[in-house]
Design a binder for these strands. Structure first.
Lengths: 193, 193
DNA sequence: GTCTATAAGCGGATAGAC
DNA sequence: GTCTATCCGCTTATAGAC
């Protein structure tokens, strides 16, 4: 183990952004708080990113990459078609229990709500998250639902989004498991034809 | 038909708030825009409500009352237990097609995200919406799922929240119908025991 | 060259005075 | 109803430290 290294300012900023922004709220978090958390000066932030929005966008892109990787792992580890489809819920639970401080609900949907007039750079990340979900769920639905794969994929996307929104709501207690149940039942119904 | 009456300033403010706030965003809408929309002066707003937050809270309370009424009607009009449980989705579709300008997704969940440090007055309305949903869905689940009514109610709440979140996401195309399907399948599964 | 500290500009939003 | 004070948040300028 080498001595503890201090990360460069840019990385400290991204870490602080990921830690604070999606937990306490993007608009609710002033730049000064990020600067304090990251122990970085304002000049450095604007030298590296140019704006708060650009820092938000980069933090979201990193989060999407991490989420995709976690989801990948859970798909690979799954044993059959049903488990592969439901892996999105296990991945979500794992992601939220992992090294990130869990967002209050969903960083991408929160950004969409909090920043309705956000620069394209930001709305593109939500679009990319949604596209990733829609495409993968469709692929994973095919072996289970055949010609009705699109219907099943839509249903799982709604169940997944519902788990996230229910986290924000605070009810039911364990929305990710509830969403998973919902998705499993839908998949079984389509399998029976 | 009598001559068109000009509503009092307080009502014009509440109408403008309902029209603009939940469509364009609560924080994204400056007070000045509400004043222009309502054709009211700032002094009047602060005389009646005291703050923007208080106006938001009142607009949310009105919205919850209207939503409850629409849901009521759809439950009463429903023909059997299954239709009564699924009425929440038909009511949602009707509410969004009704006299309100539809919110971008959900006024209550949006308020929760946009105003994480909101005064109690505001978070209470989200709590009331969630409590209304949870209690009613549990009652409506009993005839269909018996001892497992709580599980079914949780599932419908997640499907409902997912329909709303999917509106924000922009995918799938018709999330309310997808949520309804999800809920129906869940209910059928519980009915078969 | 990278980063810090400080300060100040500036627009926008809330609130209250007149 | 108009006008204004005040505050707050984002951004930039300046000057200097490691």
């Amino acid at each position: 183990m080498t001595t503890a290294q201090r990360l460069p300012a840019r990385d400290r900023l991204l870490q602080a952004a990921d830690r604070v922004l999606f937990d306490r709220g993007i608009r609710a978090t002033p730049v000064d708080e990020l600067l304090r958390e990251a122990e970085v000066s304002a000049a450095t932030l604007y030298a590296h990113f140019g704006s708060k929005d650009a820092l938000v966008a980069e933090a979201l892109r990193n989060r999407l990459a991490d989420w995709r990787a976690v989801w990948d792992q859970h798909i690979v580890a799954a044993g059959d078609d049903m488990a592969r489809l439901l892996a999105v819920f296990d991945a979500l639970a794992a992601y939220r229990g992992g090294r990130h401080r869990p967002a209050r609900w969903c960083a991408f949907l929160a950004a969409a709500t909090e920043l309705p007039d956000a620069p394209d750079e930001i709305s593109e990340v939500l679009g990319a998250d949604t596209a990733l979900l829609a495409e993968r769920l469709l692929q994973l639905s095919r072996p289970l639902a055949g010609a009705r794969a699109q219907d099943l994929a839509d249903e799982v996307l709604v169940a997944y989004s519902g788990a996230l929104a229910a986290l924000l709501r605070g009810s039911p207690r364990d929305p990710i498991q509830v969403g998973r149940r919902l998705a499993r039942t839908a998949a079984e119904a389509h399998s029976r034809g």
